[in-house]
Each structure stands twice: as structure tokens, then as C-alpha cells.
Design a protein around this nucleic acid. Structure first.
Length: 821
RNA sequence: GCGAGAGUGGCGAAAUUGGUAGACGCACCAGACUUAGGAUCUGGCGCGGCAACGCAUCGGGGUUCGAGUCCCCGCUCUCGCACCA
């Protein structure tokens, strides 16, 4: 760039550095509780300190910062904090590779990324910064763990996991490819292991019901959570085993079809199978089948569905309603984890049972007749799953299926072999991780006393650190005898520490509450401060957390409420799920090679330009297609403003001239723009249209000749105020350049005057048969009759009517006239 | 399969309760100023047509004086769940 052009561009490096230093030194965005102003808590999902921020972060945090700055200008006392979701597996990999402790790697990343966030000019109260890997943070989590444990909200159970022998670790389902480890290709073995679980299912009903309170959430996310929780109501019913004392309990949502049961399906893992098989002549065959389908299941890829298979066990059970003997099958499509792991099969009214019955030649017995139909087993080509009238159903025959459901449940309850039951798809949350870099689970196992909680005075339980930090720094806790060996807090005898750490989603389930009192040492939160600030008024983040983090956080808030920490039911009143940043039609990712580095962009254009473009290119909820040329457009706009501001700054102060026509027009535009920008932000954070409104005002300012200087200043002043949440450094500097006093950071948001925003002349569209034929410029207060007369007298209109008879003239106030022929 | 959302210029996108389709920006074209321009400024820019006009919001119907917007039938794409009994 030659020196001749430098004067035409603002020095973003100097300006941004200046204001960032100032905000930091003055603690401009520090916040304390204030009874005189309404509170507003805006929060963006905090990042994992992976090393550098990416464009998704830039977008997310820019949106949040605009909201924070806007609400401050509107007079709110705004809490806007930032922190680090600092535990997690990537740190272990990086630490091993670089021969350093995960904490060293993590904290150095935090330092770098904090610098990046500051370079973006984000208005955080940095005094509230937290990192979840800090024992001062997770000690409170450990305390809450103990409180939950005491209340029975946490338990231990043995479950099956994916184990890789060569890596010595548990793998998530997604990391098992064709039954092999994704890293070393070693065959994955299922392993029964003990793990800790949160009893989130205890809160299933409340988590479901309270979705109705989340009016400020995207419908999509609410629906996803509703489906995830997956409530089903129906009946549990016992089918006694023929020739045995045991009973098989089934769960069904269709009690009305119980007279149509023709066989029973059990999950291959069903505990009663053992009893059924002992001394059974089909034993060997059935066991082989079970083993077969179990192996097959383990080798399936994620989401793949095996062919439906089953095998007769050789045993029967009895339908308590009919007294009929029904054959018991093992079937590979019955899930042990859902319902009771046993399904009464009604081929006539269930698609899977129908397909199964066809393959294995089992009888089909229709018992619910759709209105106006008479089903027969021989002619059915598919299951009839709709409602209808009961047939061949004993005393319930002739009843409507909905009524029959209730009657049948009542009958079963009365006879004692069944009752109404509600089932949820939601499962308890397994929080155990066999990893080093996580919060240790504060439990001590004693041979005599069992699982004993670590006494509160011994918290936090911290991670052991090797003396020699150059090797094996991430050795899991179960391989560290010095960590494991301890004494039982109850009996004083020898004991061993729990070696699992907590899922990192635990830390992120309550960090938003911690921000209200981040240095509180007495507990997870200062109850008064938490009560003051919570709930979060506006939460902003990616939709990928629609279930996981957002469901866990909702659960944690309810638990913390029940433990007495919080007085709210829901953590986030309003949720904005911003779209992804994409380039060349795909999400930015290293593997695709389409990443844009925020550091480079900021270095080239400055933070204000990057912020402005990311807000302008698309509304926040939509995906944002990154466009390098578009960034230049944003930069161009700021530089045009800069040159205009310079001119104003240089112009001598003149006396206020009487208001001219041009001034009046400008005044109207100013008020119209304030209204548009305010409404665009308030309704749904549509910053893209807000910015375009400001651009229009500036364009018209540029196009208006002989506008008095004072009005140029007023227009520019408004532009800077409206734009300051989006491009804060630039506007703060230009505020000074045009000679305004005080800091723009302490200015109030401008207000519009409806009367001044009103146009005096309106452009009325005149249509003939719905097609635009002319436009009229008329006084705003014109009456309908005069308007219609004017329209009919217009020469374009006369030509379009071409002598035909006018049937009707429709006048829409302040908008249009339509002449119907 | 089930659930949710979306289809508008070359591109990102705008369009109160149905009421001027394409604001604003990018790209592109022409011109001005320049030794120079990847700077800046001015003008143009949905498609067809010299024009008057005609045609245009995924496709097909419908309601209406008037439909991007409402209703019905399709098509395509994105996301989520995926044997849930």
C-alpha cells in the first residue's frame, strides 16, 4: 500500500489497541449488583481452550457482545462473563505429544485465547473469568456430587463398555469402527465395568413439563429435547411362564391390542432367559443364537440396523387376559434398555411384529378394527396401527380403542397382574471417565464400609502430578498407586480412592451459575447473587448442544434448586442458536482445508470490520457463508464513515441555520433509522438488517447536497451510536473525531420520535387489475375519496383502463389504490 | 420411516397484519480522477424487448381486487431421532 492511500484509511491497529487498553485499565465492563437498574445476564457458551479461537467463536461472541453493549446502552445492568471449559481429552493427547502436563498446555492456551478475545473488543467483566480445571472451581462440583450422592441422585452400576486392550481405555460408540479401535485397529471387546450415574431420569417428567416454560427457545430445540426424553404412557403387565413360578413383565403403549397377542419377544440380554433355558432341550441352539446376535450387534456401525431375527425358546407364557399359551421368542430387535426388555407381540397391529410373524409363520390375530373395516388375518398385507373398535376382545369387544386402553389397564390393576406405567427414552447420565484430565470423583472405596464419600474438609480431591513431568504425565488415576492408596474416612482402615474422573459436561452444567459469584469460597454460588442474576436472560451458542449441554444444564439447575443453591427452575430464559460458519458450502474444518484464521483477518482488517461483516452477512440463526470480498465491503464502509468523520472534525463550528427542507428530510431519516435499527435488534437480533438501515442513512447523508453542518453532525452522531455495539472501537474513536464529548461507552441508546419519523408525503401505488401502473405522491392525511379520484385521473391509469368500466376501487390507507375492471 | 426447518437475481440476503418483489452488500459493466490503481468517486445491474410492455419468488392447482406471504398436491435440500414396543 503506498503512503498516498494511508490517509484514506483509518488506523485500526492503533485505534483498537487504544480502546482495548482503556477498557481493561478502567474495568469499563465490570459489573456489580445494582438495585436501581434492571439486570440483564447475557452469556455465550464458553469455549474449550483448544489453542486458538475459530470463526465460529468469533461469530458467537460477536453476537453476544452486541447484545451486551446494546442492553447497556438501553439502561440495563449487564452481566457478561467469560471462562474456559478446560478439562477434556485433547489436552491429554497434546500433553503427551509435547511432554508437558495437561495443565501447562491448557493454561497456556487460555492465555493465548484470552488475548484473542480481547483483540476482538469483547466487553467481558474479566474479573469473573473462571477455568473449570481449577480446583477452586471443581471443589464445589465435588461437594455437590457428595450432596447428590447423599440424596440418592448418584449411584454406581456395572455396565457394558467398549474396551480397547492395546490403548487401555474405554471408547465411545462413535470411536468403534467395524468393531475395531479407530486408532490402533485393535478389536474392541465389550467389558463389564463399574461406573457412576446421575439419576437424571428422576427428573424426566419435570424436564419434559418445563419445556413449556421455554417460550424464548427455538421450537426446534424444544422439540428435540421432547423427543429425546421420549415419554410413553401405557401398561406394565405380567405374563406368567407356563410351567414355572416366574413372570415376564412387558410394557406396552397399546393395551387395547392385548387380545391380539400371538407370541412374546425377549431381548437377548433378558435376565429371565437363563431360567427359561435351564433343562430346556433347545438350550444349545438358543444360546448359540443369542451369542450370534450379540456379536452381530457389536460389529454394527453406528446407526446401522440388523436384519430382524428371532428364535423360539421352546417355552411358553400365559396371556393373563385370555389364558392363552403364547410361545416365547428371543428377538434381536428387542432392546433391554427400554421398557422391560420384553415385548408382547401383536402382529396385526405392530409393523415389526407383523414382519416377524410373516417370516416365522406365526399367527396374526386382528382385534382392533379401523372404522368401516373388517380385518381378517388372511388378507392383511400390513399391520393396522391406527385406532378403531375392539373385536374378539372378551368383555372389551365393541369398545373404542382409546376407551379400551383405560378399561384394560383398570382391569389388570384390579386383578393384580398389571398397572398403568410411564416410560421414558431418556437414560441415566453416565458420568464416569477413565481419564486423567478431569475432576476426580470424591469417593473412597473401603472393603468394610463400601463406597464412602470423601469428607467435605478433605475437598478438593486434586489430580496427582508426577515429579518428572516429562513422561507419562497423563497416566490415568487407576494406574497411580500413590493416588489410590488411602484410608477409609469412616473406619480408618486401608481403602482405595475412586479413580474415575467426571465427564466434562458436568463442569459446563453449572458454570453459568458460578459466574454470578465466581470467587465465592463457601459454596458453588453465593445464593443471593445467584438469585439476583439468574436465570440467564439470553444464552447464545451452537445448535449442536441442543440436547447434551442444554439438557444437562437444565437438570443441574433443578438439582441445585433442590439442594438449596438456586431459586430458579430453568437456567436460560431465551436461547439463540447461531448457525455455523461455512465456506465453499461446507463447515470450516482443518480436514477440508477451508478454515479462515481470525488472527489473520483481524491483522488485515481489524476487529471492527470482522465483527461488522460477521453480523451483516446473515441473520444470526442462519448459516453464514464466509466471503473474503464481503469483508472488504465491510471495511470499505467503515473507511467511508472515517473519511466523513474527518471532514466533520475539520469543519469549523457554525451557527445553527434555520431548518431547511433538506434538514427536515434528514431529521425524518434519522428518526426512521433509529426506529428500524432498534426494532430489528429487539425483535430477533437481526443485525444484518439493522446494519443495512445504518448504511442507507449514511448513503442518503452522502447524497444530500447543501445539508447544514449541524445536521451532518447529528446524522453522523446517530450513525456512530447505532453502530457502536457492532464496531465498538471504531465508533468510540470517531465519536471523539467528530467532536462529541464524553465516551460513547457511557451514552444512552438514541430514541426516536414517532411524529418526526412520519413522512409528510406518501408514495401511493396505483394498480389496475392488480398490476402496478402508476405511483402518486400525496399528502399523508389525504382521504380515500380524493385519493381514488386522483388515481383515476392519472394518465398512466387512464391508458391502462382503456375505456373499460371500473367495477370497484380498493383503497388501502397509506399504501395503494387498486382499480378493478 | 418419524420429527423440525428451508427453497427468492451470478452470490450473501431484504420484503408490517396478504398490498411497490429483490432494500443493503458482494461480484460484474461503463465512466471520472490518476504516471499507475486491487484506492476513491459517479452511473448501471432479475430475465426478454428499441420501446410500449411481457415474464419472474422450487413445480402444479386453489382462495383473493391483490399471494414470496394463506390453503391443497408434489419435488428438492438441510438438520435431528432412528428397531422406543
Amino acid at each position: 500500500m503506498s503512503n498516498g492511500t494511508a490517509v484514506h484509511r483509518y488506523d485500526f491497529r492503533a485505534i483498537e489497541k487504544k480502546w482495548q487498553a482503556r477498557w481493561l485499565a478502567d474495568k469499563t465492563f465490570q459489573v456489580v449488583e445494582d438495585a436501581d437498574r434492571p439486570k440483564y445476564y447475557v452469556l455465550e457458551m464458553f469455549p474449550y481452550p483448544s489453542g486458538r479461537i475459530h470463526m465460529g467463536h468469533v461469530r458467537n461472541y460477536t453476537i453476544g457482545d452486541v447484545v451486551a453493549r446494546y442492553k447497556r446502552m438501553r439502561g440495563y445492568n449487564v452481566l457478561h462473563p467469560m471462562g474456559w471449559d478446560a478439562f477434556g481429552l485433547p489436552a491429554e493427547g497434546a500433553a503427551q505429544k509435547n511432554h508437558m502436563h495437561p495443565a501447562t498446555w491448557t493454561y497456556s492456551n487460555i492465555d493465548y485465547m484470552r488475548g484473542q478475545l480481547r483483540q476482538l473488543g469483547l466487553s467481558y467483566d474479566w474479573d469473573r473469568e473462571i477455568a473449570t480445571c481449577n480446583p477452586k472451581y471443581f471443589r464445589h462440583e465435588q461437594k455437590m456430587f457428595l450432596e447428590m450422592y447423599k440424596r440418592g441422585l448418584i449411584y454406581q452400576k456395572i455396565t457394558t463398555v467398549n474396551w480397547c486392550e492395546s490403548c487401555q481405555t474405554v471408547l465411545a460408540n462413535e470411536q468403534v469402527i467395524d468393531g475395531c479401535c479407530w486408532r490402533c485397529d485393535n478389536t474392541i471387546k465389550p467389558r463389564r465395568m463399574s461406573g457412576w450415574f446421575f439419576r437424571i431420569t428422576d427428573y424426566a417428567e419435570e424436564l419434559l413439563q418445563d419445556l413449556d416454560k421455554l417460550g424464548g427457545w427455538p421450537e426446534k430445540v424444544v422439540t428435540m429435547q421432547r423427543n429425546w426424553i421420549g415419554k410413553s404412557t401405557g401398561m406394565a403387565c405380567d405374563f406368567p411362564i407356563d410351567g414355572g413360578d416366574e413372570k415376564i413383565t412387558i410394557f406396552t403403549t397399546r393395551p387395547d391390542t392385548i387380545y391380539g397377542v400371538t407370541f412374546m419377544s425377549l431381548a437377548p440380554e433378558h435376565p429371565l432367559l437363563e431360567t427359561l433355558l435351564v433343562g430346556n432341550e433347545r438350550q444349545a441352539e438358543v444360546r448359540a443364537f443369542i451369542e450370534n446376535v450379540t456379536t452381530e450387534k457389536q460389529q454394527l456401525n453406528y446407526g446401522e440396523e440388523p436384519e430382524k431375527k428371532g428364535m423360539f425358546t421352546g417355552r411358553f407364557c400365559v396371556n393373563p387376559f385370555t389364558g392363552d399359551k403364547v410361545p416365547i421368542y428371543v428377538a434381536n430387535f428387542v432392546l433391554m434398555e427400554y421398557g422391560t426388555g420384553a415385548v408382547m407381540a401383536v402382529p396385526a397391529h405392530d409393523e415389526r411384529d407383523f414382519a416377524f410373524a410373516k417370516v416365522y409363520g406365526l399367527p396374526i390375530k386382528p382385534v382392533v378394527m379401523p372404522v368401516g373395516e373388517r380385518l381378517t388375518a388372511g388378507t392383511m398385507t400390513e399391520a393396522a396401527t391406527g385406532p378403531g373398535v375392539l373385536a374378539d376382545s372378551g368383555p372389551f369387544t365393541g369398545m373404542d380403542s382409546e376407551a379400551a386402553k383405560k378399561a384394560i389397564i383398570a382391569y389388570a390393576a384390579e386383578k393384580g397382574f398389571g398397572q398403568a406405567r410411564t416410560t421414558y427414552r431418556l437414560r441415566d447420565w453416565g458420568l464416569s471417565r477413565q481419564r486423567y484430565w478431569g475432576a476426580p470423583i470424591p469417593i473412597i472405596h473401603c472393603q468394610r464400609c463400601g463406597a464412602a464419600p470423601v469428607p467435605e474438609r478433605d475437598l478438593p480431591v486434586v489430580l496427582p502430578v508426577d515429579a518428572d513431568q516429562t513422561k507419562d504425565t497423563c497416566l490415568p488415576l487407576h494406574q497411580r498407586p500413590e493416588f489410590i492408596a488411602t484410608v477409609c474416612p469412616q473406619c480408618g482402615g486401608p481403602a482405595r480412592r475412586e479413580t474415575d474422573t467426571m465427564d466434562t459436561f458436568v463442569e459446563s452444567s453449572w458454570y453459568f451459575a458460578r459466574f454470578t459469584s465466581p470467587r465465592c469460597e463457601d459454596g458453588a454460588v453465593d445464593k443471593e447473587k445467584a438469585a439476583h442474576w439468574l436465570p440467564v436472560d439470553q444464552y447464545i451458542g451452537g445448535v449442536e448442544h441442543a440436547i447434551l449441554h442444554l439438557l444437562y444444564s437444565r437438570f443441574f439447575v433443578k438439582v441445585m434448586r433442590d439442594l438449596g443453591y438456586l431459586s430458579i427452575d430453568e437456567p436460560f430464559s431465551n436461547l439463540l442458536t447461531q448457525g455455523m460458519v461455512i465456506k465453499d458450502g461446507a463447515k470450516m474444518s482443518k480436514s477440508k482445508g477451508n478454515v479462515v484464521d481470525p488472527d489473520e483477518l483481524i491483522g488485515q482488517y481489524g476487529a471492527d470490520t470482522v465483527r461488522l461483516f460477521s453480523l451483516f452477512a446473515a441473520p444470526p440463526e442462519r448459516d453464514l457463508e464466509w466471503n473474503a470480498k464481503g469483508v472488504e465491503g465491510a471495511s470499505r464502509f467503515l473507511n467511508r464513515l472515517y473519511r466523513y468523520a474527518l471532514e466533520l472534525g475539520d469543519a469549523p463550528q457554525a451557527e445553527e441555520p434555520p431548518i431547511s427542507e433538506a434538514a427536515q428530510t434528514m431529521q425524518r431519516r434519522i428518526h426512521q433509522t433509529i426506529q428500524r435499527v432498534t426494532e430489528n435488534i429487539d425483535s430477533n437480533f437481526h443485525f444484518n438488517t439493522a446494519i443495512s438501515a445504518v448504511m442507507e442513512l449514511f448513503n442518503s447523508l452522502n447524497d444530500t447536497a447543501d445539508l447544514p453542518l449541524s445536521w451532518r453532525r447529528r446524522a453522523m452522531r446517530t450513525i456512530l451510536l447505532l453502530l457502536s455495539p457492532m464496531s465498538p472501537h471504531f465508533c468510540a474513536e470517531m465519536w471523539q473525531t467528530i467532536g462529541e464529548s464524553g465516551d460513547i461507552d457511557s451514552q444512552a441508546w438514541p430514541v426516536w420520535d414517532q411524529a418526526l419519523a412520519q413522512d409528510e408525503l406518501l408514495t401511493i401505488v396505483v394498480q389496475v387489475r392488480g398490476k402496478v401502473r402508476s405511483r402518486l405522491s400525496v399528502a399523508a392525511d389525504i382521504d380515500d375519496d380524493s385519493l381514488a379520484r386522483l388515481a383515476l385521473a392519472d394518465e398512466n391509469v387512464i391508458r391502462a383502463i382503456a375505456g373499460q368500466t371500473v367495477k370497484k376501487t380498493i383503497v388501502v390507507k397509506k399504501k395503494l389504490v387498486n382499480i378493478v375492471l
